[in-house]
Design a binder for these strands. Structure first.
Lengths: 137, 137
DNA sequence: CGTCCATTTTAGAATTATTCTAATTATAAT
DNA sequence: ATTATAATTAGAATAATTCTAAAATGGACG
């Protein structure tokens, strides 16, 4: 019998570990490729199935991106810094907003997703160079 | 000659108006269908092309969702409340965080995207009923 | 006005990411 | 061992989006 936690199956377990260890940000494809190294038999559908199950169970979270496939991330509270130019994603830990949000919205907040857009150092450099060289994009 | 703002072409203009008037949250498909009512000749690719141009020009913003196609929204600063169950999206105006973010991250923040997850009243009702009736999902 | 050039739009094929379906295999329970 | 339940596989199917090449449009300029 299954008591709500869900039986953690072989692949679900491995996928969960991959995500937790790698500090997240992988696409389904990347997870699949990484998993295939140790489990050559595994198939994409299995990865997608498990990712969606793990999401539903609240073991991981899906991070949808503006211009690339969804990323999967560990659940532990943290926010994201996203380069507006190259899409590079990194973690930040901004103060927890839940209290402030509840002050405005009342109880019942489940979670939130904060993405902060900036230009990563590499892209900022590039911009500067382009501007300096007068290479109007 | 084009001086950076970009020539606002016929369809770009109409699409931008649709988004600004409707208070956003439409998918590309919905925009296409709405536009087709007054412009029967228009084609999906045109809508996608213009949406992506408008995004690049910073005239609108793309809001990627976890479980449904991207939405397109007016640029004016506001945040989103998302029902974790049915996906319903609504606007909230939470205090501007830019200053706080810059305190932690330094200058250079371009913008941010905050989604707050909750259960909308309808879904909360449903949950309650399900629980009451003992209909274990 | 007509020609040239750049841009926009169109039509539809192509691609990508993801989901679905049905068959097969593994796991657990009796 | 037998049966039931759930996980996995293979591959087809779908949905959303992008790409490509051709056609249409809109100035700029002689």
């Amino acid at each position: 019998m299954d008591e709500g936690g869900g039986t953690v199956t072989k692949y679900a377990k491995l996928i969960l570990e991959l995500i937790n260890q790698s500090k997240g940000h992988m696409t389904a494809e990347q997870i699949f490729l990484k998993l295939k190294k140790t489990e050559p038999g595994v198939v994409q559908a299995t990865v997608y199935n498990n990712l969606s199950t793990l999401c539903k169970e609240g073991m991981i979270r899906k991070v949808p991106m503006e211009d690339s496939p969804d990323r999967y991330d560990r659940i532990q509270k943290h926010d994201h810094l996203v380069c507006k130019k190259c899409g590079k994603l990194s973690d930040i830990c901004f103060d927890d907003l839940t209290k402030d949000l509840e002050k405005q919205l009342g109880e019942g907040i489940l979670s939130y997703d904060l993405k902060v857009f900036y230009l990563c150092p590499k892209c900022r450099e590039e911009e500067k160079r382009r501007y300096h060289d007068g290479l109007q994009m």
